[in-house]
Design a protein around this nucleic acid. Structure first.
Lengths: 160, 160
DNA sequence: CGAAATTTGAGCAGAATGCTCAGCTATAGG
DNA sequence: CCTATAGCTGAGCATTCTGCTCAAATTTCG
């Protein structure tokens, strides 16, 4: 798995086209970009292979799963128990993503929930994890800038 | 766009299969799940249509784009300028996602960067946005739990 | 019970895929 | 300057998949 590789301008152009139409076929992409079908096929395969594309789950909206609420829980942990803590957090289904922030003493936990009560319950579960000492929960009220990579892609595509 | 709809157990099972193999064809999914090809095709189309699946960009790893660093910037803003602020943030390519947290007075800004110096520059750009009063930058040192929805999907799939 | 929605199997023309091969550029290294 | 290596291209071919339609069977739900 060559996951160190960074993509080039052509790759970026392919990804932009795919962002515009996720179900576009290789043939359509090749035609649109003025490349050979063979080339596009090879590049897409390579990107899929090399880890440039994360898992498909990333495309799924938690809202569609009945979990319209997103919250960020910051936690202080005993750094000696970091491994156990992150394993415990991974055991909570509503925990979608966990980052260790600068110094590895603080965690940022992204959670989703079905409603306020559900969120309260999940927050409790997190606080109950051995090794977690203090938590702060912040509800995401609005998604001011929805997740996007297009600007960076565009920059990569134009960099000749 | 019926974006209110939540998916059912069969949808969840389809998504799980897709998470395991993002390039699986409809035929393969149907066979694997013991459903008719027609059904799978209709459901996938409906999910794609209804907004249950977010844009393709979500699958792209910023690291592959040459931005291996992730940081979270929390910001206090003058709430009267929220619209201008979020528009200005949307203008910064390295800003990947912005949430308005409880009360809409605080922002959580997710940024990516090529290296430490780049991050410093981006943090400066954010602080320079008119209406932003205070910022705190936290570097994501480790991805303790990588983004995932599988646990929730599994629950949805087994809920009969 | 009866209406509405969903699922299924079947079929068909057209399109896409996976694969291979040979020729044609570039680009970098000696 | 010359050559090796990698990448792009066009072509071909068998197989598979898609998009679409239809009618019948089944399930869901008021």
């Amino acid at each position: 798995m060559n996951s160190e590789r960074t993509i080039d301008a052509t790759d970026a152009r392919i990804l932009l086209a795919l962002a515009a139409d996720p179900r576009a076929t290789v043939v359509a992409l090749a035609e649109q970009l003025g490349l050979s079908r063979n080339t596009v096929q090879a590049r897409v395969a390579r990107m899929e292979q090399s880890g440039a594309l994360g898992s498909f789950e990333r495309r799924i909206t938690p809202k569609a799963l009945g979990h319209p609420l997103t919250a960020f829980v910051t936690a202080q942990v005993n750094q000696h128990q970091l491994a156990e803590v992150s394993q415990a957090l991974a055991g909570i289904a509503e925990v979608v993503e966990v980052f260790g922030l600068s110094g590895e003493t603080d965690l940022l936990v992204r959670v989703v929930a079905a409603d306020a009560e559900d969120l309260y319950r999940v927050a409790g579960q997190i606080l109950a994890v051995p090794g977690i000492e203090r938590t702060t929960t912040a509800l995401a009220m609005r998604e001011l800038v929805p997740h996007r990579l297009t600007p960076l892609l565009r920059r990569a595509a134009n960099r000749c």
